[in-house]
Amino acid sequence: MSVEQQGQPLSAEDDVIIIKELNKWYGSFHVLKDINLNVKRGEKIVICGPSGSGKSTMIRCINRLEEFQRGSLIVNGVEMIEDVKNIEAIRREVGMVFQHFNLFPHLTILENLTLGPIWVQKKPKEEAEATAMKYLERVKIPDQANKFPGQLSGGQQQRVAIARSLCMSPQIMLFDEPTSALDPEMIKEVLDVMVELADEGMTMLCVTHEMGFAKKVADRVIFMDGGEIVEQNTPHEFFDNPETDRLQLFLSQILEH
């Protein structure tokens, strides 16, 4: 495919995301400052930080929901440039799960799941529906296929949202605070699905404050503040031996209660 040819050669065979000196401004407000991050295939990364630290903005740059002004970004071998085809190619490879689910309220669950495969990947309808049912079973709600999103609980909706992304067979999954809009009793069912996904070797970038989840599945935990990556480490080191006082303070604030 021409898109692949335009991509720059990978610097390391396994790096599926390469972010170099990424900078972003909202007007004159500097949101992301010199972000450098390489993600290996199959790696699970948890990103945390206070609100306004730029963590959501960073992962939203990866599938170009946000533009950036300087730096470079290569996703699965395709460089993010000002080109409609490149952007669409990258979005096909990257799944995203949102804080507020963003299911399409006018479509049934099944239609939500098959929309991408049918219109973007041009799959036949039967095949798309079979795949959709497979993923619905994996997130444990096959019986809701013909309902509308409004009829489901928050936790169920979020699991549908995960299944919707998986139907596009993405190489990378981005999670933008997937549990923070959920009632407490529903968080676990969503996290369970995510843990299962991690166990299967999916490359995941996850903005979340669920520290239990981070300890359990993350290969690396990143702490962002003021638009910078302040600290990154293995979960063990991250939680037990924070290097900066900033992270120490943050951890004490979120773990206090």
């Binding site: 401004w25 500097h30 400052k33 950036f68 002004q69 300087r70 440039i81 000002e82």
Partner: peptide, 19 residues
């Protein structure tokens, strides 16, 4: 947060003209 850097140029290279 700092204001010292302002965006200089539009990003990176361009693909095909029409895209």
């Amino acid at each position: 947060m700092s204001k010292e850097h302002m965006p200089e140029v539009r990003p990176v290279k361009s693909g095909s003209f029409f895209n």
